[in-house]
Amino acid sequence: MAPRNLTGISEILLMGFSEESELQPFIFIFFLSMYLITMFGNLLIILAVGSNSHLHTPMYFFLSSLSFVDISFTSTTVPKMLWNIQNKSKVITYEGCISQVFFFFVFACTDNLILTVMAYDRFVAICHPLHYTVIMNPQVCGILALGSWLVSVMGSLLETLSVSRLSFCMNVDIPHFFCDLPEVLKLACSNTLIINMVVYFVVVVLGVFPLSGILFSYFRIFSSILRISSSRGKYKAFATCGSHLSVVSLFYGTSLGVYLSSAATSSSRTSLLASVMYTMVTPMLNPFIYSLRNRDMKGALMRLLSRIASLSVRRIGSF
């Protein structure tokens, strides 16, 4: 029997990771732990940058912006997944699914653009150090950050409006833990040619172009570093962009893994596991990469934690 189009679909089922009930508590604790680590780590980065005047520089401004985006990115999908596991439910409303698609793309694209802006910041700092404070002034930094958000919202809105015009079939099961756009498109009974063209256009504009900008920036950075005569100078220059390069490699490595795995195999399980790396592991590891590889950030975090600990001791003593 051919699937019947529904004009008023109200619910979609997110099948998640496993149907076995005995695995659900382990899955819940595992992903809750990852989510709390992500929230705590990125929040510490934001507080450390905001509370330390020595970190009020463009590099750390963009780092705190990246941490905020990572918190929002993870919060788009994980809380709903944890809620469904806890309540033994797989349901997400149609409106909730479309909202997930919108916010997922907003934060994913903003993450991508912020990383691109950070690469440009490192390019100016290493290749044009004498003009750095003039080029990367507070107004320019604000415009770059705001522009990243606005472009991401417009691109995501374009995709979401296209998806909302589709009609869906009787089978509304998504073999995923969130409303991933490729999986949502598989449910459509109407022609998806237009939406696929829109998706490819947005991916090129907000994915390929920024990646090209990052690669070009680092090509110029490495060319400048190789011209430095002293070994100490080369090491110092590499150290200023090492953390960002690690985050870029992790972000694009995991995100490309999702699409390459989807293209190489039809297994939804493989795509599901790759998406975990992209949506949860990367945002969780970013604070560790920046704090462990950056002496200034390490010092700021230690002072912040000491301040929090002393305030806690005072409050306990007051009781």
Rank of each mutant, 00 (worst) to 15 (best):
I143D: 08
Y290C: 05
P25W: 05
F219S: 14
V163N: 08
L311E: 03
I174W: 04
S51L: 13
L36H: 09
S190K: 07
Q100Y: 03
I289V: 07
F216E: 01
V140E: 02
L256P: 04
S167M: 02
E11W: 03
I85S: 06
L215Q: 08
Q139K: 15
S310H: 08
G8I: 02
S255V: 10
S51Y: 13
L292P: 04
A48Y: 02
H54Y: 02
A119W: 01
I12L: 10
L211F: 05
R303Q: 12
F177L: 11
H131N: 15
E95T: 10
I194Q: 14
R314K: 15
E20G: 03
M136P: 00
L44E: 10
K234V: 05
I135H: 07
G96N: 04
V49D: 12
H56P: 06
S266D: 05
C109E: 00
M280V: 13
T57Y: 04
V247Q: 15
E20H: 13
V117C: 08
V153D: 03
V276L: 12
I308H: 04
S249Q: 08
R165K: 15
W149E: 00
H131D: 15
R227S: 10
R122D: 01
F219P: 01
F168Q: 07
E11G: 07
D70R: 10
V199W: 15
I45M: 12
A125T: 10
I85E: 09
